[in-house]
C-alpha cells in the first residue's frame, strides 16, 4: 500500500504547476445562505435509540476498554 500511496502522491503533485496567486479557497457553491438554529430544545430524551446500536453498553452507558489517565 505504501507504494500505491506514493504513486497517488506523485500524481497529485501536478497541482503544483497551477498558479494560485490571489485565488481564494473554494468554500461551498456560494448559493446556500448561512442559517442558524433557534435556541430551543427539540431533541434528546431518546436514550434507547442512542444506545440501541451500541456493541457494548452497560445500563445507560457506552463502554470502552478502561482508560487510565
Amino acid at each position: 500500500m505504501r507504494q500505491e500511496l506514493s504513486g497517488i502522491l506523485g500524481w497529485v503533485e501536478q497541482l503544483n504547476e497551477v498558479d494560485i496567486t490571489d485565488v481564494p479557497p473554494m468554500i461551498g457553491t456560494g448559493l446556500a445562505v448561512p442559517r442558524l438554529r433557534e435556541d430551543v430544545v427539540t431533541d434528546g430524551d431518546k436514550r434507547d435509540a442512542v444506545l440501541a446500536n451500541a456493541p457494548d453498553s452497560v445500563g445507560p452507558y457506552f463502554t470502552v476498554p478502561k482508560v487510565v489517565e
Partner: peptide, 30 residues
C-alpha cells in the same frame, strides 16, 4: 436541539447528532 442543561440521567441529553451517528449534520445555534 438536545438540552444543554447540566446533569440529567446519563445519555438523555443526547441527540443522534451529538452521538455522531452516520449522516447526522450540525446546525449552528444562534
Amino acid at each position: 436541539g438536545a438540552s444543554a442543561e447540566y446533569g440529567g440521567e446519563p445519555n438523555t441529553h443526547v441527540s443522534l447528532i451529538d452521538a455522531g451517528f452516520p449522516g447526522m449534520l450540525p446546525v449552528i445555534n444562534a
